[in-house]
Design a binder for these strands. Structure first.
Lengths: 116, 116
DNA sequence: ACCTATTTGTCCGTATGTATG
DNA sequence: CCATACATACGGACAAATAGG
């Protein structure tokens, strides 16, 4: 876990942590199924508060890059892509319906975004 | 702002607040453009900590139901639905591409979810 | 251009709850 | 039953953006 905090950076600390972990998941340094250090441990190593690390972890969970479970820690999902896609599609459809957008229009949106 | 906190409920307080505000946005009690009470004020009224209310507000922002700006407060967006859809679609397409899912397959997914 | 009040944003610290193993 | 580790809530402090005078 090579993570560097730049105290002078404009980005908040929790975001720096989240971004760097996300980057390591993206480039394969952190493999699917691997476990992140316990929030307290990482916090101690980085000399920041536990909440700051937990905040970063929760951000990563919201982006479904990791799974958080009490007593178990943070596990990289990363490649649960099918599940990611399913959820993303579910959300797209839900917000489209809420906006009164027809199936045809939604598909047109998807198509133009895909071929962009 | 009629919000009731049930201390005995299983749902956390911040979620109770977020859900009730979301409900009032959905049913029109809170109109688009209207301003939510300052976090500190609502916290005082509900006799909870400011951070708890801020947590709820930030949750609502993540769902793009409100906009948060320092010094200005929390404003109901509600109808920025087109933007919501655009972002959702963007995300769906991005995760589909990352998963190696073709445009055709993605459209099939969208269709089945829509008509579900 | 300046100052001040308002209000969210971040971070720290502490305490307690709760699911996991 | 016990240790681990995230989840929630409280409290306090200061920073940063906004609005208004």
């Amino acid at each position: 876990m090579l993570i560097l905090i730049d105290a002078n950076a404009s980005a908040p600390v929790f975001e720096q942590i989240a971004d760097q972990v996300a980057g390591q998941i993206a480039d394969g340094t952190l493999e699917q199924g691997s476990r992140l250090p316990a929030a307290r441990d990482l916090a101690e190593a980085l000399e920041v508060n536990v909440h700051t690390v937990l905040h970063a972890y929760q951000r990563l969970r919201d982006e479904s890059l990791i799974e958080l479970r009490r007593g178990r820690g943070a596990v990289v999902t990363g490649l649960a892509v099918d599940e990611n896609v399913r959820r993303a599609v579910e959300h797209s459809v839900a917000s489209a319906r809420a906006a009164g957008i027809s199936l045809t229009s939604l598909i047109a949106l998807i198509r133009s975004e895909y071929t962009r």
